[in-house]
Design a protein around this nucleic acid. Structure first.
Length: 904
RNA sequence: GGGCGCGUAGCUCAGCGGAAGAGCACCCGGUUUACACCCGGGCGGUCGGCGGUUCGAACCCGUCCGCGCCCA
């Protein structure tokens, strides 16, 4: 890097003027571009992440902001650590959502997609994508995402489409894709099939209606009947049986006999089936095979007819009743009314709260529907996906959430992949004369005359599942693939575990399987799961609740760094976090603090030394702050390696603000005023800030970049080296252990003790001043004794001044230090507030007495002495001694005050 | 109904076997030559209830209560 003279900083930091320009500079410099050759040549280790592709119609919401912040922290950290980093961005084509957006536009002109025809409509969707799609990509730039824009991908790109066709053909040839007539989830709003995970179950208030079906009687026979209960009474029109449990004595006599289906006047049998729950309701269930998955299975077992009684948009059809043409909900009321009129409604529960499936896109109530669709036979794929985690080839973090993953992959149903849409990858299957079927691979010509292609497209997830390798050029064996697959980590919310992880695992293992050693087949080595972002009261954000926050508004107000830091700080693996604007303000304050601290340091000539600071020649405060820096360096790397972003951020926040700013900078002011200390202090300041800014860069890239380039004159923090303890620790041989002075990142107990004593001394004097109402700015003459080596610094930090002529101590503060009691005699030039001081000392005395009692009790307990480890016993003993000393000291002070009070 | 998780300061959360912590909020004082997006000081908790294990429990076990999520 080229070192130039540090540049002065403005009076205030304004993220708005800095962030956009910095991001532009990073792009121009090409820092985010990944070069596979540096990996293949062995020059660098690879680190790769594929961005779980956001939806092309979507905007950046706060959940993305968290997800991206975490990925960016990892990417920047690894980049600084010398890895070749690929973070690959892109979007999916979101079949239903995108088609709906464009159809809505057409509807404004009173048109439908059918007015344009398939080809023209798809062209219109591409137009929309070009003009209005992908807003999220620009928003990612605002956040600072260090993605490789040169490799941006879209699931409908040519290359990715070839990948889709390739894997479809392979699965088809392996008989892992099949076409069949099954009950699927049908959305009457979107007019397409859905997979299980696109259906959201919710407790809705419906009704449970019990209806009497009369038996068909022989002449002269007693009338008999069976009562069934249903929440969807309109489906009665499609019933083809009533089922009971074979061992249910109540119905043994009627199994095999016929019932008269009300309203339709069709005869249906009573069948016996093991899967009927005798305890539920009356123990008899109506069977509508074309409109209920369980009933479909019963229908198959008993060879029942399966009439479809609903149109695609959920209107009654083909029943030959007056209900034909009615919407399903209208029909529900009408059917019930007619049944009631016939006296067949024997019971009714309204409201009856039960679980109802809704379309995750349109929120319409999903209708189970018998339909001819394409499916993936998931059993072998899902087993492989489970095994990869079971045998550790892919690690789920935090590990507790693996249970959820297994729960899903071990119980997965076959996946419905056909969608009755136009926007998407069209199924590469052609139908010819006489029922001939041909699946066409990517390099094959479609069959010609007399053949037609399947009209459906594939589920968007089908192409998203290929994302970890299709984006890298698969099925071509590219350098990118060789260098960066398997990806290092997939970062996503635990709520998306089923969507991304399970499917990407299945397809990754299947597609890459034949070509690689087993260890290298998985799509990601680690899956790092984070939680949901909630509002400030811990409530889930939702449009209906009106508590959705816009991360971009926060970026405008507080800066991207502040948003990122807030999210990072709250990110504990696998658990949800709450967020509020005020808290983002707190992070903005932290960024300002860093700015001001660096500004102060630069104004005082701080510089980064060529070689590590010589600790032997340093003050205790220098050694303390450097020793703590070593610890923070080690701790931050360790926590990042364990995905503990919240703790890493917290540790840096605490060190930078509470230790460096509140204590070291204040001590540094004193040292800078001493000619023989000033230069050393400038180097320590430079070292500490240089390192802290490096450590913070992955979290808050913008402010750290501005400050670091100003401080060091370096090119960019993006490509600066990640600190190690070897960088910061002095290699000067001091710290052989004899004097307890640390070396090479080891703790420095002497310096720590010195600092703890200083903090104790300063805090006690400040507290006295506050209790006594002494104005903070007022200089108070004082004599400090029993605190050698601390007196001058402590005096500066507590605004004490040397005693002059006529000094008369009006008050004394005693402070327990490691080496004994320090005494500060002050001349407040007036009588002190005895009440306030006595109350203070009484409070401290009470604490000391309680501690003496607590520790005394333990030390008198044979069991404790015998069983507790020596380390603990020693600790208790030390506390006991300390409590005794405190009591003596405080009692003596109180006695003096009593004397003073009596004398005055 | 099955499974998982959570109840710690006003709010959001760390801590998960040896003296109760943080951020934000709140109260008092402050133009201390980096910072009022600040500085200094302070208030605030029978760690959901009850039992058990242990020399010792916010932390381990049981049970109950209250929330949340996923799958039926």
């Amino acid at each position: 890097m080229t070192a130039t003279a540090p540049t002065p900083l403005p009076a205030q930091y304004d993220p708005a003027v800095v962030e956009v320009a910095l991001y532009r500079r990073w792009l121009d410099a090409g820092y985010f571009h990944a070069d596979p050759r540096r990996v293949l040549s062995g020059e660098r280790r690879p680190f790769s992440i594929v961005l779980p592709p956001p939806n092309v119609t979507g905007d950046l919401h706060v959940g993305h902001a968290l997800d991206h912040t975490i990925m960016d922290i990892l990417a920047r950290w690894h980049r600084m650590s010398g890895d070749e980093v690929l973070w690959l961005p892109g979007m999916d084509h979101a079949g239903i959502a995108t088609q709906t957006v464009v159809e809505r536009q057409l509807a404004r002109d009173g048109k439908t997609r059918h007015d344009y025809g398939r080809e023209l409509f798809v062209q219109k969707v591409w137009d929309w994508k070009r003009d209005a799609g992908g807003a999220i990509l620009g928003q990612m730039k605002r956040l600072g995402d260090s993605v490789d824009w040169d490799r941006e991908r879209f699931t409908l790109d040519e290359g990715l489409s070839a990948a889709v066709q390739t894997i479809f053909k392979r699965l088809y040839d392996d008989e892992l894709i099949y076409r069949a007539e099954r009950i699927i989830n049908w959305c009457p709003g979107c007019l397409t099939a859905l997979s299980d995970i696109e259906v959201e179950h919710r407790e809705d208030a419906g009704e449970l209606v019990s209806v009497r079906y009369d038996g068909v009687t022989a002449p002269g026979e007693e009338p008999w009947s069976v009562v069934i209960a249903t929440t969807r009474v309109e489906t009665l029109l499609g019933d083809t049986a009533v089922a009971v449990h074979p061992d249910d004595p109540r119905y043994a006599a009627v199994v095999g006999r016929m019932l008269r289906l009300p309203l339709v006047d069709r005869e249906i049998p009573v069948v016996a089936d093991d899967h009927v729950e005798p305890e539920f309701g009356t123990g008899a269930v109506k069977v509508t095979p074309a409109h209920d998955p369980n009933d479909f299975e019963i229908g198959r077992r008993h060879g029942l007819p399966m009439p479809t009684i609903l149109t695609e948009d959920a209107r009654i059809t083909g029943t030959g009743t007056r209900f034909d043409g009615m919407d399903r909900f209208e029909a529900r009321a009408a059917v019930k009314a007619d049944l009631a009129a016939q006296g067949r409604v024997v019971a009714e529960k309204v409201p009856y709260v039960h679980s109802v499936g809704h379309c995750s896109r349109s929120d319409d109530v999903v209708e189970p529907r018998l339909s001819l669709q394409w499916f993936v036979r998931v059993a072998p794929l899902a087993r492989a996906a489970g095994d990869a985690v079971r045998d550790g080839r892919t690690r789920i973090h935090p590990p507790e959430l693996a249970a959820r993953y297994f729960d899903w992959v071990d119980n997965m149903h076959d996946w419905t992949i056909s969608r009755q849409l136009w926007w998407g990858h069209r199924i590469p299957v052609w139908y010819g004369p006489d029922g001939a079927v041909r699946c066409v691979g990517p390099d094959e010509e479609p069959p010609g005359e007399g053949w037609t292609q399947d009209p459906d497209v594939l589920d968007t997830w089908f192409s998203s599942a290929l994302w970890p390798f299709s984006t890298m050029g698969w099925p071509q064996d590219t350098e990118t693939l060789q260098a960066f697959y398997p990806t290092s980590v997939l970062v996503t919310g635990y709520d998306i575990l089923f969507f991304w992880v399970a499917r990407m695992m299945m397809f990754g293992l299947y597609a890459m399987g034949p070509e690689r050693p087993e260890q290298d087949v998985v799509p990601f080595r680690t899956v790092a799961l984070h939680g949901l972002v909630r509002d400030q009261n811990g409530k889930k954000m939702s449009k209906s609740r009106g508590n959705v926050v816009d991360p971009l508004a926060w970026i405008d107000t507080y800066g991207a760094d502040a948003v990122r830091f807030t999210l990072a700080r709250g990110a504990n693996p696998g658990s949800d976090q709450a967020i509020a604007g005020e808290w983002v303000g707190g992070s903005r304050n932290f960024c300002s603090k860093l700015f001001n601290a660096t500004r102060f340091a630069l104004l005082n000539g701080a510089r980064v030394p060529e070689r590590p600071v010589d600790r032997a020649a340093s003050t205790a405060a220098d050694r303390w702050v450097l020793g703590r820096l070593d610890e923070v360096v080690g701790q931050t790397s360790a926590l990042l390696g364990d995905f503990q972003f919240g703790k890493a951020a917290e540790g840096l926040y605490h060190y930078a603000w509470d230790e460096v700013c509140d204590w070291y900078l204040e001590v540094a002011k004193v040292q800078l005023a001493e000619p023989e200390r000033a230069e050393q202090t400038r180097e320590v300041l430079g070292t500490v800030l240089d390192t802290v800014l490096r450590l913070l860069h992955p979290f808050v890239p913008f402010v750290t970049e501005s400050l670091w380039t100003a401080l060091t004159g370096g090119e960019s923090l993006v490509v600066a080296a990640w600190p190690t303890t070897a960088d910061t620790a002095g290699a000067d041989g001091v710290g052989d252990g004899a004097d307890g002075v640390g070396d090479g990142g080891h703790p420095d107990p002497d310096a720590d003790t010195w600092m703890a004593d200083l903090q104790q001394l300063v805090t006690q004097v400040r507290r006295f001043r506050a209790d006594q109402g002494l104005a903070p700015g007022r200089r108070v003459p004082a004599v400090v004794s029993g605190a050698d080596g601390h007196a001058a610094v402590a005096a500066a930090l507590t605004r004490l001044e040397p005693a002059g002529a006529g000094f008369t101590a009006t008050a004394t503060v005693t402070v327990a230090l490691s080496s004994g009691t320090a005494t500060v005699a002050l001349d407040t030039s007036e009588a002190i507030d005895l009440g306030a001081e006595t109350a203070r000392l009484d409070k401290e005395l009470a604490v000391a007495r309680k501690d003496l009692a607590d520790t005394g009790r333990k030390l008198g307990d044979e069991q404790f002495l015998g069983k507790a480890p020596a380390r603990v016993v020693d600790g208790i003993r030390a506390r006991n001694t300390k409590a005794q000393a405190d009591i003596e000291r405080l009692t003596a002070r109180l006695a003096e005050l009593g004397a003073a009070g009596a004398a005055s």
